[in-house]
Structure formats: C-alpha cells, structure tokens
Write a protein that binds this DNA or RNA. Structure first.
Lengths: 229, 229
DNA sequence: CGCCCAGTTGATCATTATCAAGATTTGTGG
DNA sequence: CCACAAATCTTGATAATGATCAACTGGGCG
C-alpha cells in the first residue's frame, strides 16, 4: 500500500468521478488517496461493517452482494474499472464486496473524501451523477427481476457487461463471474441460467465460445430483449 | 397553491429531511416552498420529464412507477407522509409518480433546494441520510424480488406498510393501492397476489377484514417471512 | 335493481426449481 | 506436460411455483 501522492494524476482519469478536474482539485485528492491491491477471492468490504472508505476501481473486477440470515444471497452489482464502491450515505455498509479478478483500487478515507466533495463543485457534480447512476442501475435491475423472463434477464446482464467493456474489442463478452454469481444476480438458479444460455444460442443471438466467453451475434435483438425502457 | 412562507414551521416537522433544523434554516426553506394539492388518480411526475422540483409528502399516498416501451410496469415505491419525492441526481426523472389518495405536498424548486442543502450542514446530513434510505429501500425490494416466493414478497410489503403507518393504531393495515399495483410492485400477477393473501390467511398470519384492510394476527412470523436481512 | 369493476377462485399451461447424472474445465502434483 | 481430482457447468427428468384463461362473487353507484 503506497501513497498515490507521488503518482501522476493520469491514474485518476479512469473514473467519471474525476472528470474535468484540474490540478488544484486532483492534488488534495491524491494527498488522501492510497492504493490497494486485492487478490482474487478476497473480501474488500464486510456487510454491516462501518463505512470508513470510498474506493475507485482502477483494474480488476469485484462483486457487490448481500446475504440474509436465511443464507440467501442477492448479487447487487459487478464493478469494473472506473466504478466507485462504498459511497454509501448510511453509517454502515449494507453489502459485502468481494474480488472476482485481482483488482487494484484507489482508497479514500470517507470523511476526508466527502469534505473535498463539498469543497469542489465539479467533484460534487460528478459525485452526484455517479451516485445517481447507482440508483438508476439498481432500478434497472429491479425492473429486470420484476418483469422479465429468465432469458431476458440474461440478455440484460450481457448487454450491461457489453456496454461496460466496450472500450475493449466489441465482439466478445468475457464473463468473469461464475454461473452461481449470475444466478444470484438475476434471481434464478444456475440450471436456469445454463438453459437461458442454451436458449440464446438456439435463437442464434450468441455463440458460447466457452463458459466464460460469449460472442454476441445479434446485438440489436439482444438489446431489445434486455431493454428496461 | 399558496406560499408556505406564511405557514407556521411546524408543517416541516413531518419529514426526517427537516429534523433538527432551527429557524435560520427553516425560514429560507419556507421562502422557496410552495404547497400543492393533488387529487387521487392524478399524475405528479411524468417519466423522462425534466427534474425541476423536489417534493415532500405532507398528507395522502402516492405511487412511484416505471413503464417500459413494451408496456410492462414496475412499481418502485409507495410514498407516505414524511417521504420526499423527486430527489434524483440525474437531469430527468426516471419514473412517474401518481397519486393514490388525495395528497398534499411541499414543493421546492430543485436547484434552490440543493443550494440550501449545500449551505446548511444539518440539512445536508439529513438529505444524505434520506437519499441513503431510498437506495437501501430499493435494495430491500431487489432482494425480495430476487430471492423470495410470492407469499413472502407479500409479507415484505405488508411489513413495510405496517412500519410506515405504525404511528396510527398498530392492528390493521390499510392497503390504499389496488391488487394490480401490489402485483406490479412485487413482480407478480393479481391472481398470484390474491392467492398469496389466501395463503397468509390459511396460515393464520392475517385476517382479511376487507380487500383493502388487513389485520395482522402474528406480527413476528410475518416479519420473519418478510425479512431481507 | 342491476350493472360494472375489483377481487377471488378454479382449471390448465408455462416457466422455473429441484434432483440427478454426465460433461467440461480448472487446478495440482508428479 | 500430462494425469488425475475437484469443481464448475450442462443436460435430462420431474416437481413446484406462478401465469394465463375463464368463471364467479360481492360491493359501490347510477
């Protein structure tokens, strides 16, 4: 864990949170920023623990999930580079965060970070927008779970991941998470997820290169089935 | 629509948003606050319209919903006195709001309201908490839709309404919304909702006084089935 | 009074879950 | 690098749950 104060500010450019900021804003941010590397499989945030930090994903993939006493699990989101994590308004985190693929994160003490958010209008506007995106994304997922069939929900996830990693080549979708993770994200079982993949393949919407690599053959139909609008 | 500037500040006390505020904070709030009465059935917010106002419910009940192009509907929340509405971080509302029971609202111009939020730390803390509650509530609903069976989802709604109106007598739950509204909130059909009621009755958890009045007979079991923790 | 609408109940169908078996991938040690 | 074990994923058969279609009930209101 080394201070990022010595790092060039370009490392901040990965997130919407820091878009349009000048050196006078980035410098104090860098001053309170630390770096953290999380190996795959490790937990970053434990549900119900005190919310002391805000994170920005620089590299890797993480999964946000919620467990109930009865042992049921709801996956809330998959986090990619540029996403922020832990920006809750409550005292405690209401979810756990685990690392799916070795990740690198920027770590900010929550209180100091919020102070800077208050001080810099651009940062504040960004934070508000990013916070709004989280709610919007959750509402999308809510719509998918409430109104869509299994194969439509899977399209919803594929389209979402496709949009996220469109910076890469736009042909293949890489599924870092397991079938169980997908099932718990979509409110299904692994068997139903597997059959939903088979169905999309039969519909010639996708080609299943491997269990974790999906080639989209008809993006427009995929988007149509995925649409929550 | 009359300005609330002339009204006594007690009318503000209904919402968490205004808890702990002194006169120096309430006065400028009152200065930008207007009152609005909405008749039952009328629309307060149209999906995708520009987010220009923030509302606080003083009386009545409203329903927040989202419609897709394909005609499917997801009900997102039912709003009771003390709740705020429209406090989005995006440019446009991503949902519609309709009135279920004649409502009275405080109306604040969004921009001016946010300026005051910035100026007053207590108000800011309150706004943050309330905003956090919305996300928390949406995550609860997400868990219910993803992980729970029909009768458990119904318990989730009943427990939620029970908590909201517990200021009243704690015996009966009044359901202002229709069975279709409940169905679209829980991601079910009206028939399944009806059968879920019958099941809870058979389990002796509730008594169905009338279609819109439910007597809870065993709160602890109801809460257990409703629990998302 | 009788219509209309919301809600309920019943019969049947479709979808998803569960249980079980096989296939494939991944990880590990030789 | 291969072989084997373990874990993950897929597929099949069956059961449970919820959706759909249809008929019926009951309360509110002209």
């Amino acid at each position: 864990m080394s201070s990022a104060a010595l790092k060039p500010p370009e490392t901040f450019f990965h997130s919407k949170l820091f878009r349009g900021l000048g050196h006078e804003e980035l410098a104090p941010l860098a001053a309170i920023c630390q770096r953290r590397r999380i190996p795959s499989g490790e937990q970053l945030i434990r549900q119900y623990s005190a919310a002391q930090h805000v994170y920005v994903v620089v590299a890797g993939t993480l999964m946000i999930e919620r467990l109930s006493r009865s042992g049921r699990r709801q996956v809330i989101a998959f986090s990619y580079p540029g996403d922020y994590i832990g920006f809750t308004n409550t005292e405690d985190y209401e979810y756990s965060v685990v690392c799916l693929r070795e990740a690198e994160l920027q770590v900010f003490p929550r209180r100091e970070f919020l102070t800077l958010v208050d001080r810099f209008p651009t940062l504040k506007a960004n934070a508000r927008q990013v916070g709004g995106n989280v709610l919007a994304q959750t509402l999308d997922q809510l719509f998918a779970l409430g109104q869509k069939k299994a194969h439509e929900r899977l399209c919803f996830l594929l389209a979402q991941i496709g949009r996220r990693q469109c910076g890469a080549h736009n042909a293949d979708i890489e599924l870092i998470m397991s079938r169980q993770d997908i099932a718990d994200y979509l409110g299904l079982t692994i068997e139903t997820v597997s059959r939903a993949f088979a169905r999309l393949k039969a519909m010639q919407l996708v080609e299943i290169v491997s269990a974790h690599r999906i080639r989209v053959l008809d993006r427009s139909v995929l988007e149509e089935l995925a649409s929550v609008q």
